[in-house]
Amino acid sequence: MKVLILCTGNSCRSQMAHGFLQSFDPGLTVCSAGTNASGKLSSKAVEVMKEAGIDISHHTSDSVDKYLNDQWDYVITVCGGANETCPAFLGKVKHRLHIGFDDPSHATGTDEFIWSEFIRVRDEIKEAFYNLYIHEIKPQL
């Protein structure tokens, strides 16, 4: 089973979702990409995932172009707010899903508030992708 997770920058939300989904089933092929890939991971995303027991520090921030010629069972967009545009994937895919999350890297305020936003979004991603795995992906394996 091949799953591609998309967002704009491929530095935060898609990386967290990638890490969680891969942790639920190491047998899955999980990749993540962005329409405007930043080329680096958010250090806060790496840190908040490490706190949850998952190391994403080895992930790379890749352009969606890298994956357009591959076939995918699922392509999942994770962009959130109304001011964001979800990427369109024009490649070969069986199931297209959207599971939106706020971008914690846009949070402003105190360091404590920003950190709490990363934790909140991380936990929302974990729950949503676990439910997806249990109810949709695992039954097909």
Rank of each mutant, 00 (worst) to 15 (best):
V3I: 15
V3L: 10
V3M: 06
L6I: 11
T8M: 08
G9P: 04
N10M: 09
S11C: 09
R13F: 02
S14F: 08
M16F: 04
A17W: 08
A17P: 03
G19N: 04
F20P: 00
F24L: 08
F24S: 00
D25C: 12
P26H: 01
P26G: 00
L28W: 01
T29W: 00
T29N: 02
V30G: 10
C31V: 06
C31L: 11
G34F: 07
G34D: 04
T35M: 09
N36Q: 15
N36Y: 10
N36L: 13
N36F: 12
A37M: 06
S38K: 12
G39Y: 09
K40E: 14
S42K: 03
A45F: 05
A45V: 06
V46G: 04
E47F: 04
E47S: 15
M49E: 02
K50H: 10
A52L: 02
G53Y: 07
G53R: 05
G53T: 07
G53S: 02
I54Y: 02
I54N: 05
D55Y: 06
D55M: 06
D55H: 00
D55P: 03
I56A: 07
H58S: 15
H58E: 12
T60E: 15
D62G: 04
V64M: 13
K66L: 14
K66W: 08
K66T: 13
Y67T: 14
D70W: 07
Q71P: 02
D73S: 13
V75S: 06
V78I: 09
V78N: 01
G80N: 02
G81P: 04
G81D: 14
A82F: 14
A82T: 15
N83I: 09
E84F: 01
C86L: 01
C86R: 08
A88K: 10
A88E: 14
A88S: 12
F89C: 10
G91Q: 08
V93N: 08
V93F: 10
K94H: 11
H95E: 13
H98R: 08
H98S: 15
G100W: 01
F101G: 07
P104E: 08
S105V: 09
H106W: 09
T108W: 00
T108H: 04
T108V: 14
T110K: 09
E112L: 10
F113L: 13
I114F: 05
I114A: 04
I114N: 01
I114C: 08
F118C: 04
F118S: 01
R120Y: 11
V121W: 00
V121N: 05
R122H: 06
D123W: 03
E124S: 12
I125A: 07
I125M: 06
E127V: 11
E127D: 08
E127F: 03
A128Y: 05
F129C: 05
F129N: 01
F129P: 07
N131A: 09
Y133C: 03
E136N: 07
E136D: 12
E136Y: 05
K138C: 00
P139C: 12
Q140T: 15
L141R: 14
